[in-house]
């Protein structure tokens, strides 16, 4: 209502941005209240609960033998899977954009399935091919390999979906020019295409890493959550909650939160760098 009182927006400011009017001020207040109640205050509660007992309690919760093994497995698997995704995700995006063959659009839909499937269903899906009665004779259930497999499945779309639009928008003329100047296809890829894809790959990789570190649902049925073998950080948090030990749960959760925050910061930096280049 009061927007008209501000006069002509866009005259003195960059187009599209207006200082707060009364309506948008109320809107900002309401949305920030909801965001605080839903996200910020609960996350703050995790950090406060973790630090209430002091540094020594926090540290002993994290370095508990079983917990530290779970954290190491989680970080190791998330890193390894992210490395695989960097190569496979880029290759998949490449095939989807540049290659032409029958059934390619079906592949495009397949990529979204890990995003869309409920995580518990994802675990069941993997169990049907790589579990006890595997038609392939490969049984990873209840081993640490199941963690790698589940991470590969749930993180599949991240890099593909980041790289795909960038690859589509690339100018083929530059590659042609490189080729006409005698560059091999590999050189063209490394020197011309890869630098344009790098920010998208990096953004996808950070998201994929974060998703892996926090994964829970797809592991429940698949990994068996065996201590010292296939137990991940999220499972340890849940265990602590169920044993009525919120301080220990919050300590491990804070560690995961720090990882998430680092990922968000990394993403922000990457996005800003790309925006500046444009």
């Amino acid at each position: 209502m009061s927007t008209t009182t501000t006069g002509w927006p866009g005259l003195s400011r960059p187009a599209g941005s207006v200082t707060l009017t009364r309506t948008s001020g109320i809107g900002l207040g309401l949305t920030m209240t909801w965001f605080s109640l839903l996200v910020l205050i609960p996350l703050a509660a995790v950090i406060v609960t973790a630090t209430e007992g002091g540094w020594t309690n926090f540290w002993s919760a994290i370095t508990n033998e079983q917990t530290s093994r779970a954290i190491v497995l989680t970080l190791l698997a998330a890193t390894a899977v992210t490395v695989v995704n960097v190569f496979m995700g880029t290759a998949i995006a490449w095939v989807l954009v540049r290659d032409r063959f029958w059934g390619r659009s079906a592949l495009d839909v397949l990529i979204d399935i890990p995003f869309a499937l409920p995580t518990i269903v994802a675990g069941l899906v993997l169990l049907s091919l790589y579990g006890n009665d595997s038609p392939l004779g490969i049984n990873v259930a209840n081993t640490s390999w199941s963690v790698y497999l589940a991470f590969l499945f749930v993180t599949l779309p991240f890099i593909v979906r980041m790289v795909q639009p960038v690859l589509e928008s690339l100018d083929l003329d530059i590659e042609e020019a490189a080729a006409s100047l005698g560059a091999s296809r590999f050189t063209t890829f490394r020197r011309i295409i890869l630098p344009s894809l790098a920010p998208a790959i990096a953004a996808g990789a950070t998201l994929s890493f974060a998703r892996g570190v926090g994964e829970y649902g797809s592991l429940v049925l698949l990994s068996g959550n065996l201590p010292f073998e296939s137990e991940v950080a999220s499972v340890r948090i849940l265990g602590a909650i169920e044993n009525d030990n919120p301080a220990a749960a919050a300590s491990v959760a804070t560690l995961l939160l720090v990882v998430s925050l680092l990922v968000i910061v990394a993403l922000d930096v990457i996005q800003r760098r790309v925006a500046r280049r444009d």
């Binding site: 499972v235 919050a250 995961l256």
Partner: peptide, 13 residues
Amino acid sequence: AISPIVVGLALVL
């Protein structure tokens, strides 16, 4: 970027 278990814990706290 947050683990769903952390989300649950945060809300419970």
